[in-house]
C-alpha cells in the first residue's frame, strides 16, 4: 500500500485543509452534475448568498472561541431588518428617498446590532446566566418583536428607497458583487482580530479555561461581552446587505440562520466548547453550506424530501474529515 511518510502527509493535509477539500469535492460534484455550476452567474450567486451566513459566522467564531454561543442571530437579523425598514419608510417625509435615508437606515442597523449584542453579553457576564439560555430568550423576544412590528405580515420598504438602496445588493465592483466585498473585508478584519491582536489571544484563553484567564489578569467579562458585541455588529452588517435584496422583512426572515452560522463555524474547525477558533475555516464552512443547497437545486436525482438528509450527511462528513482521527486509526491497523 502507501508508504508511511506519504500517509502522514495525507493525514496532515486533511486535518488542516479538511474544509477546503470538502468544498473542492462538492464543487467537482456540482460540475459533474451540471457544467452550468461553474458558470460565472452561478458562482457569483453562490458567493453573494454565502455572504449573509458568512458574515454572521465570522462573529460567531469569536463568541464560540471564547466559550459562548449565540442563538439569537437569526431573530436579531429579522428584527434589525424590520426596524431598518420602518425607520427608512418613516424618514422619507423628512429626508426624501435618497442616500441620506439609506444611511440613516444603515446607522440604525449598526446601533441596534451593537446594542443587541451588548445586551446578550452583559446578561451572560454580569447577569451570570448561561449564554445558551440568554440567547435562547432573546431569540424568542426578537422573533416575536418582528412579528409584532409587521402586524403578523410583511414589512416592505418604500418602493423609491428600494431603487436607491438596490445597488448595494445587486451591483458589482471589479467584477464581484458588493455583498462579497463586504464579506471579504469582514473576513480579513476578523482574521486579523483573532490571530494578530491581544484581544484574539484573550478570546482563545477564556475559551480554553476561564478561571485561568481570570487569574492571568484578563478582564474576562469585558472580553466576553465584546465577543457578543462583535457578533451583533456582524449581524447588522449582514442585515444591511440583506434588506436591499427583496426589500422586506417578516417573521420568516432569518429563520435558522443561527444554526447555519454555528454549523459553518464548526465545519471550519473551531471547537464548539471554545478555546480554538479559525476564521478561514469559518468562511469555507459558510461556502460549503451554501454550495450544498445550490447543488441540490441543480439536480433532480435526489428527492426533495431528502434535502435535509443530504445537508446533514455532508456537514457530518465535513467535520469528520477535518478531525482526522480516522486516518490515524487506519494507519495503526496497517
Amino acid at each position: 500500500m502507501t508508504t508511511s511518510p506519504k500517509t502522514r502527509n495525507f493525514r496532515i493535509d486533511f486535518k488542516t485543509a479538511g474544509p477546503a477539500i470538502a468544498l473542492l469535492i462538492l464543487c467537482v460534484i456540482g460540475f459533474l452534475l451540471n457544467p452550468a455550476f461553474i458558470s460565472e452567474g452561478n458562482i457569483t450567486n453562490l458567493l453573494t448568498r454565502s455572504a449573509f451566513i458568512g458574515i454572521i459566522a465570522v462573529g460567531a467564531t469569536f463568541v464560540i472561541t471564547a466559550g459562548g454561543i449565540d442563538l439569537s442571530v437569526g431573530s436579531m437579523a429579522a428584527v434589525i431588518a424590520g426596524v431598518m425598514i420602518i425607520v427608512m419608510n418613516g424618514a422619507v417625509d423628512t429626508f426624501g428617498t435618497g442616500v441620506t435615508t439609506v444611511l440613516i437606515g444603515c446607522g440604525c442597523s449598526i446601533i441596534l446590532g451593537l446594542g443587541a449584542g451588548w445586551v446578550n453579553g452583559v446578561l451572560t457576564t454580569k447577569g451570570k446566566i448561561e449564554a445558551f439560555i440568554v440567547t435562547l430568550g432573546t431569540m424568542g423576544i426578537y422573533r416575536s418583536l418582528v412579528t409584532y412590528f409587521a402586524d403578523g405580515g410583511t414589512l416592505s420598504l418604500n418602493y423609491d428607497i428600494r431603487g436607491t438602496y438596490r445597488p448595494v445588493y445587486y451591483d458589482s465592483f471589479f467584477g464581484l458583487p458588493i455583498p462579497v466585498w463586504v464579506f471579504i473585508v469582514v473576513a480579513i478584519c476578523g482574521w486579523l482580530l483573532l490571530n494578530r491582536t491581544a484581544f484574539g489571544r484573550y478570546c482563545t484563553a477564556i475559551g480554553s479555561n476561564e478561571s485561568v484567564a481570570q487569574y492571568s489578569a484578563i478582564k474576562v467579562d469585558r472580553i466576553k461581552t465584546l465577543t457578543f458585541v462583535i457578533q451583533g455588529l456582524c449581524v447588522s452588517l449582514a442585515t444591511i446587505i440583506y434588506v436591499p435584496r427583496l426589500g422586506s422583512a417578516s417573521s420568516s426572515t432569518g429563520v435558522l440562520w443561527e444554526l447555519e452560522a454555528i454549523a459553518a463555524v464548526i465545519i471550519g474547525g473551531t471547537v464548539l466548547k471554545g478555546g480554538y477558533g479559525r476564521i478561514g475555516g469559518t468562511i469555507l464552512g459558510a461556502l460549503i453550506l451554501t454550495t450544498i443547497g445550490n447543488i441540490l437545486n441543480f439536480t433532480d436525482m435526489i428527492s426533495n424530501y431528502l434535502n435535509g438528509t443530504m445537508q446533514g450527511l455532508i456537514i457530518i462528513v465535513a467535520v469528520w474529515l477535518q478531525r482526522g482521527e480516522w486516518g490515524r486509526t487506519k494507519h495503526k491497523t496497517e
Binding site: 451540471n34 452550468a36 450567486n45 448568498r49 435584496r245 422586506s248 420568516s252 445550490n294 437545486n297 434535502n307
Partner: peptide, 25 residues
C-alpha cells in the same frame, strides 16, 4: 423542467429561482 420546495418564503423563492435560471437556459 423541475420542481423544488421554496417553503412559501420570499428568500427561498429567490434562491431556488436563481439556481433554476443558472441551470436552465
Amino acid at each position: 423542467l423541475d420542481h423544488k420546495h421554496a417553503n412559501w418564503n420570499r428568500d427561498d423563492g429567490f434562491e431556488v429561482m436563481q439556481d433554476f435560471l443558472s441551470r436552465f437556459p
